[in-house]
Simulated assay, not measured.
Amino acid sequence: MPPAPYAYRQLDDPKLEEKAQRLMETIRCLTCQSQSIADSDASLAGDMRSQIRQRIAAGEEPEAIRAWLVERYGDYITYTPRVTSLTWPLFAAPLLILLVAGLLLRKRFVRRRLMDGEGL
């Protein structure tokens, strides 16, 4: 199949192309997974670039396009995942681990200070 019409062709309006480019840099390529669709040569990324450019040219806002992509492909598609009832533990876990580690270290240092003070 030939590539999508705007897979490798920019929009004529530089402002619209800049909007599209900024959005494409925040969307993960589902084939490559480590690259944005702006950097990927995968055919799926080309199709997604074309979809974004067509929607931007039609006047759709980037956040509406992002919402459509997330609805279609899931939260993994974006580099900035939303905090939801399912994802909040992923954001809270590092803070909880740091808190527990801090409490354990504090307890150890207080105990050591008491033991050193009793030995005098």
Score class of each variant (00 low, 15 high):
Leu90Tyr: 07
Thr78Asn: 15
Glu25Thr: 07
Glu25Val: 03
Ala45Glu: 01
Ser34Asp: 14
Thr26Phe: 04
Lys19Thr: 09
Gly46Leu: 02
Asp75Tyr: 06
Thr84Glu: 13
Arg72His: 09
Leu69Glu: 04
Thr80Asn: 12
Ala38His: 05
Asp13Met: 11
Leu30Lys: 07
Asp47Trp: 07
Ser34Trp: 07
Gly46Thr: 04
Pro62Leu: 03
Ala38Ile: 02
Lys19Leu: 10
Leu23Ile: 05
Glu18Arg: 15
Asp41Lys: 05
Glu18Thr: 11
Glu17Cys: 14
Gln54Asp: 12
Asp41Met: 09
Val83Thr: 11
Lys19Glu: 12
Trp88Ile: 12
Asp47Ala: 08
Cys32Asn: 01
Ile37Asn: 00
Glu60Val: 13
Ala42Arg: 01
Asp39Val: 05
Ile27Asp: 01
Ile37Thr: 02
Arg49Glu: 10
Pro81Ala: 09
Ala45Asp: 01
Ala67Met: 04
Arg72Asp: 09
Leu44Lys: 08
Ile52Phe: 03
Ile65His: 03
Leu16Asp: 10
Pro89Gln: 10
Ala42Gln: 02
Pro14Trp: 12
Thr84Ala: 10
Ala45Tyr: 00
Pro14Tyr: 14
Met48His: 01
Thr84Val: 08
Arg28Glu: 00
Gln21Phe: 14
Arg72Thr: 14
Met24Thr: 03
Cys32Ala: 08
Val83Trp: 08
Arg49Cys: 15
Thr78Gln: 15
Lys19Val: 05
Ile56Met: 01
Met24Trp: 03
Trp88Phe: 13
Ile56Asn: 02
Ala38Thr: 03
Ala38Val: 04
Glu61Trp: 08
Gln35Leu: 15
Asp75Thr: 06
Ile37Asp: 00
Thr78Leu: 11
Arg22Leu: 09
Glu71Leu: 09
Thr80Gly: 10
Tyr79Trp: 15
Trp88Tyr: 14
Ala38Asn: 06
Tyr76Glu: 12
Ser50Gln: 09
Ser43Gln: 13
Glu71Thr: 11
